[in-house]
Write a protein that binds this DNA or RNA. Structure first.
Lengths: 204, 204
DNA sequence: ACCTGAACACCGTTCAAGT
DNA sequence: ACCTGAACACCGTTCAAGT
């Protein structure tokens, strides 16, 4: 059985199948992808050099649909622009929560993500924030988004009141939202705190 | 060859060896741990039920050395207490950067970590922050610490100026610290921004 | 150029057998 | 109670052979 007249596989199809598997099962193997696509495991290596590269292809796919910063810029304050950008960034993760550990465990090599940093640098620079701290600020915002993305898969059991020793924590858990709603509210709060802090940091 | 007069293994010895392997190589296998301890792979299962449980044992070991909040409380403002707690929390990660992806990929079941949340709840509650938002605030701080911990293994290549398209980002990269120093400075900045924001949130 | 089959060097985990 | 040896059902990856 030699090569088909039209290719059965592509990096895109492989990445899409892998995303689907992670969404459904929390993981993926080369064999599972191959089986889903009706092909042999070794066939994948005509399109991809390693499992790590499949993860990078998944990352590209997740972030390529993110709207560019320009589409949000008209008439908005820099705070609104940053807020919108970070929310899109987090929402891209949130669309596939179980994928997050794979993406955060591995070094970024996708240009789609570098574009996000580019956009942030442009917005923050135009806002008048000190150039000497620009990368630090970007890192803070990036860290918060990534931490919040990981929070999406924290099961409510982590906040199991049964394990909390202090009355304060038990009470806090009892009056909190659960699941996705809780994660969303926390993300918005963090955004408020960070942007409020940046506003008093020399921005115009 | 039956059981030895005195046990060759323990959960602690297994976890310590695994941490050492991750520090040195970035990963660990059951076989590597066994070889290091002069034992057969199957022997580990007399002390541990799975690889996941080894990771939890590593987590315990990493955080058990963290000082309790009480030891920092005397005469300090709540901001100083939170700052000190979060810094210890992050430093525990920072002592083993390559371990971070393993810890963040897996759900927490270690009481040592729950203790950190307990301490945060107690400090923030005493500070007068609204009880209804306590868990959200803890989540924000936790997300930031975890995101910052993952930033520790981001190689400087991520910030490779060659890939940055905008002049703003290229300039920011050029004038930034690199490696651990950059990560430390960013973490301190994030702490300032978040605590500053919390101060204007109804805290006394 | 691209799919296949066979092979390689691993994985984590189980379990009856030993003392 | 705890270590062993053998076995099981997988892993990701390589590569010569086919069209």
């Amino acid at each position: 059985m030699g090569r088909p007249t039209t290719p059965l596989l592509s990096t895109e199809r492989i990445a899409a199948t892998a995303i689907d598997l992670v969404d459904r099962t929390g993981g993926f193997t080369i064999a599972q992808i191959a089986k889903t696509l009706g092909v042999r495991p070794s066939s994948l290596y005509n399109h991809v050099t390693s499992k790590a590269q499949i993860i990078e292809a998944m990352r590209s796919r997740i972030f390529e649909t993110m709207p560019a910063a320009e589409s949000r810029a008209t008439g908005a304050t820099w705070e609104q622009q940053v807020r919108s950008l970070l929310r899109s960034y987090r929402d891209a993760f949130a669309a596939h929560p179980r994928l997050v550990p794979f993406l955060t465990a591995q070094t970024v090599s996708a240009p789609d993500v570098m574009r996000i940093y580019d956009d942030m640098a442009r917005i923050l620079s135009a806002a008048g924030l000190p150039h000497s701290r620009l990368l630090d600020i970007i890192t803070v915002l990036d860290s918060f988004v990534i931490g919040s993305a990981l929070d999406l898969i924290a099961p409510d059991e982590v906040w199991d009141a049964g394990q909390a020793k202090s009355a304060e924590l038990r009470e806090a858990i009892a009056s909190a939202d659960s699941g996705r709603l809780r994660a969303d509210r926390s993300f918005d709060l963090g955004l408020d705190l960070l942007l409020g802090g940046l506003a008093g940091f020399g921005a115009r």
